[in-house]
Amino acid sequence: MSAMTRKRNITGYLFILPWLIGLACFTLFPLGYSFGLAFTDWNILEPAKFVGLRNFDKLAHDPNVRDSLKVTAIYVLSSVPLGTALSILLALLLNQNVKGMRFFRTLFYLPSVVSGVAVSMLWIWIFEGNYGLLNTVLSWFGVKGPQWLTDSKTALLSIIIMSLWGVGGSMVIYLAGLQGVPRSLHEAAELDGAGPLRRFWHITVPLLTPTVFFNLIMGLIGSFQVFTQALVMTGGGPGNATLFYVLYLYQNAFQFFKMGYASALGWVLFVIILVLILVLFQTSGRWVYYEGEALAASRPKRRRSRLARTGGGEGHAPQTDIR
């Protein structure tokens, strides 16, 4: 390594040193510390006691863990598909070349940057059973609305509906993906007689699948970590109807002071999310279309076909008739 290369590398490391320190102090160290705590019994006030796999055995038989996993799974299976469909629909609507479209794009994006606590307080007022906005609107049509947040049948549904408030963040990413679709492909398909639906299904959707895949991964991770809404709006009730997994983890850590058990819960959640993400990556090759990879894969085939036509190959001269 030359002196100039060494100097350039040192300069680069110095520039990223603050980030490396932050990564070590606020990510790697807490991860390692929590992994060690998962095998202990620690209530903050007394020294930690090593208990081996007792915390993991306990959570395997804890009914609240099963309830929280069920609630979280229902939320993930409902909010992620609904959020994906709505954000794609909004992106399609906001991808039109209409005057004033930038204003509407900003309008739909702004809710996704509002604080989670502020949003939760707003939706508490919307879902309030007696004088809330939603039930007031329903009363105009002669419909008596339920007690949204205090009824176990509608509490989780309320939080799922609330999750659609923040689709603006995904909508912006889908909008960028839509604007990256070459217009020439649509024009060529239109000349061949393809209608809007066929062009959307056979051109836009395949080219948008990488963006769908990215948002699906991020939405899955975020949905498994829902916490603020349940804590502020329902506290996990009524009757554990909104006891999300991360909320139960928080209760064990900061209400019951079972730090070891909470750490074990956290690592189980990490494993669940990791397995699901790995499954998505393994299956992505069947439905995610990358244009660059498709072109790269087709080049060797074209080269082999040319060599076959000329009768040549690597290390062989083309066969010619010299008679």
Rank of each mutant, 00 (worst) to 15 (best):
F213A: 02
L191F: 05
T228Q: 10
N55Y: 05
L138S: 06
S78N: 03
L69P: 04
M259V: 13
S68Q: 07
F56E: 02
V137Y: 01
M233S: 03
S152A: 15
G168L: 06
G266I: 08
G239Q: 01
V288R: 10
T27N: 12
L77A: 13
P238C: 02
A60H: 06
Y174F: 15
Y131T: 11
L59T: 10
T154Y: 09
V232M: 06
I126Y: 00
F141R: 10
M1Y: 11
F29Q: 03
S158Y: 01
G145T: 07
M162D: 03
T228M: 04
F35H: 01
D67K: 08
T283G: 03
L122P: 02
A296Y: 12
F227H: 13
T234H: 02
T72W: 04
I44K: 10
P318C: 01
L269K: 06
V71N: 01
G177F: 00
T106D: 10
T106E: 08
L86Y: 02
K7Y: 06
N135A: 04
S87L: 11
P63F: 00
Q282V: 07
G83L: 07
S112I: 12
V181C: 09
I160T: 09
T320W: 08
R299P: 02
D57R: 09
K301Y: 05
D62Q: 06
G177E: 12
D41G: 06
R302M: 13
S34C: 05
N43F: 03
P18M: 02
V65L: 15
F244S: 05
R309E: 14
L92I: 15
V172L: 15
L37Y: 05
S170Q: 14
G100H: 09
P111Y: 04
G22Y: 09
S120R: 06
V212I: 14
Q225K: 15
G36F: 04
L216F: 00
A155C: 06
N43R: 13
L20H: 02
G292S: 13
V205R: 13
G235P: 12
W19P: 00
I124F: 00
W287Y: 07
E128A: 04
L149V: 13
N215A: 00
L164W: 00
A264I: 03
N55Q: 12
K258H: 15
